[in-house]
Design a protein around this nucleic acid. Structure first.
Length: 274
DNA sequence: TTAAATTCCTGTAAGC
DNA sequence: TGCTTACAGGAATTTA
């Protein structure tokens, strides 16, 4: 499922093909995938505008369009964005298709339909809470251990739940929450407030390490994730704990434990993580 | 304000 | 083999 590294990989792959291109037609095949504004307004707003830049914020893709407008796409769990020749067959579950002025077609496909499309000015999207308030970008240099400590210290929820909260840190999902806790040698079920400053420093390092390594490997294709060219990432082959419950810990060799935390399957090592 | 539970959605895999 | 059921999870929404 797409988290920060996967969304970053999609953005990097699409950027050279989209920036400078005009969207000349929008085929909205499943209108409820649009969450803001009404589907007709979405189509009207996007049509005819040029993609001036493509950026990422948390797990959101931001298409910066003419006149200060944004088209925002969240891939949910199974969302895919890929360029096709317009006369090629549509795969099942393609909910939206954007025809570009160079003849290519950008298609949004999403089997489980947890993804969403949005359009508006930045202020408008924030005001309507279509885009939630997001915490800092964890791979930013400005993301400091002091800041993270302040965000965790006041909270009693389990660390894992806080890492999944996009208002605490943007872009972390189930895979990299588990990976980061393991790398930081911290139990994911500890209350956020119980973490010492050294533990938070390790956690910050672990988050950056997990995420940047995953970006370098073009993301984790553990479910249906594919990049903008339909290719799998390779980070899933290097994951230390996610999806490895019962298998030996890479550090101590003891079987990894699986628990349910914040409604999510959580894997960690009872010996190495304290 | 915070935290936990619920909901949405369908392909896949396990179990009988 | 074929059916049923559980499971995967991001984030909005609901409940306490």
């Amino acid at each position: 499922m797409p988290e920060l590294p996967e969304v970053e990989t999609v953005a990097a792959g699409l950027r050279p093909h989209l920036v400078g291109r005009r969207i000349v037609r929008v085929d909205l095949r499943f209108p409820t995938i649009v969450r803001h504004p009404e589907p007709e307004q979405f189509v009207d707003g996007v049509t005819g505008r040029v993609v001036e830049a493509l950026t990422r914020r948390g797990k959101y893709l931001l298409f910066h369009l003419t006149d200060g407008y944004l088209m925002v796409i969240h891939l949910g769990m199974t969302g895919h964005l890929q360029l096709f020749e317009p006369d090629s067959d549509f795969a099942p579950h393609v909910h939206a298709a954007f025809l570009l002025d160079d003849g290519k077609q950008l298609r949004y496909r999403d089997v489980r339909r947890f993804g969403r499309l949005l359009f508006g000015t930045e202020d408008e999207l924030l005001a309507h809470r279509a885009i939630p308030r997001l915490g800092p970008e964890p791979i930013d240099d400005a993301f400091t251990a002091t800041d993270l400590y302040r965000r965790l210290h006041a909270r009693r929820a389990p660390l894992k739940a806080l890492l999944l909260d996009q208002a605490v840190v943007a872009g972390v999902g189930n895979i990299y929450a588990d990976e980061s806790c393991f790398r930081a040698r911290v139990r994911p079920d500890r209350p956020g407030s119980s973490l010492s400053r050294p533990a938070v420093r390790r956690l910050r390092e672990a988050l950056q390490e997990s995420l940047t390594t995953a970006i370098a490997n073009r993301g984790s294709s553990v479910d249906s994730y594919r990049d903008a060219f339909g290719e799998r990432g390779s980070q899933q082959e290097r994951l230390l704990v996610y999806g490895r419950g019962g298998q030996p810990c890479a550090t101590c060799g003891r079987p990894l434990s699986t628990i349910r935390l914040a409604g999510r399957t959580t894997v960690f090592c009872r010996r190495c993580q304290r």
